[in-house]
Amino acid sequence: MIIEILSAFFSVYVFTMLLEVPRCYKIHSAVAGAVCWYVYLLMRDRGSSPMAATFYSMLVVALISHILARYLKAPMTVFLVSGFLPVVPGTAIYRCVYYLLLNDTELSTHYLIETVQIAGAIAMAVFIMDSVFRLVQVYHENRKAIS
């Protein structure tokens, strides 16, 4: 498990070079990626489906990205994109088209559904965290307006 988390850390760290992440945020992004994979493994070991595990890990990553974005005054996309790299449905989308080319409709549909499920889980988790942070913002503004 430790090897896998280290692997997630280093894969995100080297991937940031391809995504042109600013140098000062490389470590933060890699930590976000490692945390993402840690939560994913933790939930998968507890018996969650890949979709549910992705959902929980992305909730945590979105939370971290929002906090880092406010703390470091950078857009949250910087940490979010690197954070979801380990769970991104890249293999599933590749397999879907690959089996389509091999004329294996059953496996192709299976991986298509998996792709949409995982991407949907990521999007839902980010969306929920965005809404929560918007609510917090509105709450603070209202308190300021009253006082």
């Binding site: 994109v81 790299l85 449905p89 792709t115 991407a119």
Partner: peptide, 20 residues
């Protein structure tokens, strides 16, 4: 090895755009 090539990030951004 195909991880640098597959469009995982694009696909996820696409679903996020749809949700927005």
């Amino acid at each position: 090895s195909i991880m640098p090539l597959v469009p995982g990030v694009t696909f996820t951004t696409a679903i996020r755009d749809v949700l927005n």
